[in-house]
């Protein structure tokens, strides 16, 4: 099921300079993520988890080292190519959903298609198809504020898949949701991961995510602390059930 390497990092370091203070958020991370993988990035806040996550998604460039997405060095891309990459190669899911408030569910889902140059009819058909996949085709004309958090996040998932990306980046996708809704969202992500063979990379604190993940990368102090495989996760399942 797992294909070729889709994201590869080589000695990635990221140093922030704030006035006279330099903060080393990442201190050399090497990792390979393969196509079709469901990967969770875990770590306490301040561990460099978010920085690493942004790096992998082409939202930030490393101070040292290289990030390859689909074997292309992200640092070499100009603004147009980066926009293209974000539009077609990567789908983003945010903790706070980040739907465009003035647009309906369908318009939100079709926005990346518009950016990709699809015409309105194609975009509408594809958008409805995606909304159906997340079970919201009946609510296509609703604005974000007319929907619950779980529904908004499902629209956001549909939007992330708009241009059939190879990678979906999910930043704490269940962070603003209750337990039940969070589980639904994880189930949808897992299902899409299997059905569409899309790589899912999520940064999370949520232990429920562990069950769905193929691998978990623990980040601590800007380094990879450990990488766990799905087999190891089964052991922790008791604690996941314990949350119910």
């Amino acid at each position: 099921m797992l294909g070729q390497t889709i994201v590869r990092t080589k000695d990635v370091k990221r140093i922030y300079t704030m006035g006279n203070v330099t903060v080393e958020a990442l201190r050399g991370i090497n990792i390979e993520i393969r196509a079709g993988e469901y990967l969770s990035i875990m770590g306490p806040s301040g561990s460099g988890k978010s920085t690493f996550f942004n790096m992998v998604g082409g939202l930030d460039k490393p101070t040292e080292g290289k990030v390859y997405i689909d074997e292309v060095d992200v640092a070499q891309l100009d603004a147009y190519e980066l926009a293209w990459l974000r539009c077609r190669k990567v789908g983003y899911i945010f903790q706070s959903f980040n739907l465009i408030p003035v647009m309906t569910a369908l318009e939100n889902v079709t926005l990346p298609m518009v950016f990709a140059g699809l015409n309105n009819d194609e975009a509408r058909d594809k958008g409805m198809e995606l909304l159906k996949q997340v079970g919201l085709d009946k609510r296509h004309s609703h604005k974000p504020f007319e929907m619950s958090g779980g529904q908004q996040q499902r629209v956001a998932i549909a939007r992330a898949l708009a241009n059939d990306p190879a990678i979906v980046l999910a930043d704490e996708p269940t962070g603003n949701l209750d337990l039940k809704t969070g589980t639904e969202i994880i189930d949808i992500l897992k299902r899409l991961n299997k059905e569409r063979n899309v790589t899912i990379i999520s940064a999370t604190h949520d232990m429920k995510m562990l069950k769905a993940s193929d691998r978990i990368v623990w980040i601590r102090d800007g380094r990879v602390d450990k990488i766990e495989k799905s087999e190891d996760i089964v052991i922790q399942e008791g604690s996941v059930d314990g949350e119910h």
Binding site: E71, V72, Q76, L77, Y80, E81, W84, R88
Partner: peptide
């Protein structure tokens, strides 16, 4: 340049 150097199979396009 980068594409030649990396010898990748997938082309990165320019956003329209």
């Amino acid at each position: 340049d980068s594409q030649l150097l990396e010898g990748n199979k997938i082309r990165i396009g320019k956003q329209i």
